[in-house]
Design a protein around this nucleic acid. Structure first.
Lengths: 216, 216
DNA sequence: TTAGATTAGTGAACACCGTTAACGCAAGGA
DNA sequence: TCCTTGCGTTAACGGTGTTCACTAATCTAA
């Protein structure tokens, strides 16, 4: 296989993923369909099997891409803040996280919702830092480690062990993570629409409470 | 239509929902299929349209049933605690909420996950207390109102208005709600499997932190 | 009791879906 | 030049929700 054709192949794979994402955005995760993708590309459905062994693997790769995109967005927001200001870096990453989620509800449903046929494997395969999901989590752990080194993390219980991160830092991270995950996902999934039209004040209040929980 | 046949009709509707739930439990929300239900019942698929106008409406009714079941479970746990001990009532309701969710992952994915074709309408229709979703939320609000009357709720910002509940109580409720929703759903959806095998210590720690946040 | 209306069920059909198999065609390398 | 490899096709299998036309049974009212 020549370089030329290999590059062409990679281009086609990208086009397939692009079409899949268009389906996802237009009609939700369950609407991703090989036949519709093929129709959009002007080819027939079986041809797609030259590039992906099954629909599941396509969705799995799409998940990875989305996690990378989300991480890059948060890193972009982070890098606008001076590297020493770990607190504001965390705040702006969380804000960008929420912004991205609300701007991409369908993508969020895919990667943060309950396990779907192709997505289930994604989270099962998340074992080390080479995994896109772990890399996303890491960008939030890093500033916490820096704050910990400065003694600014409140001493709490160490409930969860981790190979590289001190257990108390990791526990602190998980507590904060699930807290923001809950607010953002409840808002994104429409489970707060009965209570509030705009959850931003709640989010900002939570962010403020988080900041105040840090040792200054 | 006679009473006799109307009762028989309601019985068939219940049998349909039972078959649908069996599909749900066995293979997830997207596996609920009219043809499979019909097959299980020994009839043909079009016959089901005598009882439900479409698959969506069946799923919608199933959602309502599940919310009622979840509420009854939590109320059952609540009623084992003396009516005056509002704090322990809240704790045990939260524990039962988590227990039910972990024992029913498929049902949880349906009613607490991202919007599916039939479920979307469910949350949109949640406008007053006649809605099963609102009734579920109410059982958590009631003890908070009692604590508020005793002056045991910490004074916080009033960010969210509500017709019947004071805004500061409602804000406190939403903050606590999203916090526990986050931890429980992250666990149920497998988004914590990379970090921890059993999230119960994290949950109990959050519960304890919540309790300590109350004025004693 | 009989005639008419209502109800529950059937089978065929349409338009989708993922996936597999067999086949043709064109480009690449020996 | 041959012939292997890759890319695409058509046909087909079994699955899905849904609609339509029709039958058989049951319930109602004259």
């Amino acid at each position: 296989m020549s370089d030329r054709s290999q590059r062409r192949r990679e281009l086609t794979r990208a086009e397939i993923k692009g079409a899949a994402r268009a389906q996802l955005v237009k009609a939700g995760p369950s609407a991703i369909s090989l036949r519709a993708i093929a129709r959009d590309m002007g080819i027939t459905a079986p041809a797609l099997y030259r590039y992906y062994p099954a629909l599941d693997s396509l969705i799995l790769e799409l998940c990875t891409d989305l996690y990378v995109e989300l991480r890059l967005a948060c890193e972009g927001a982070r890098d606008l803040v001076p590297a020493e200001d770990h607190v504001k870096r965390l705040q702006d990453m969380a804000r960008e996280f929420r912004r991205w989620v609300l701007a991409h509800p369908a993508e969020t449903a895919l990667i943060f919702g309950p396990p779907m046929p192709g997505v289930e494997q994604f989270h099962e395969q998340c074992v080390d830092l080479s995994h896109a999901g772990a890399q996303f989590g890491q960008i939030f752990i890093d500033p916490l480690l820096a704050l910990h080194a400065q003694g600014r993390l409140p001493v709490g219980k160490a409930l969860v062990e981790h190979e590289e991160v001190p257990a108390d830092v990791y526990t602190f991270f998980l507590n904060a993570w699930t807290q923001f995950y809950g607010l953002i996902m409840a808002e994104a999934f429409g489970h707060l629409s009965w209570a509030v039209t705009d959850a931003e004040p709640l989010f900002e209040a939570q962010l403020e409470a988080f900041t105040e929980s840090l040792v200054s």
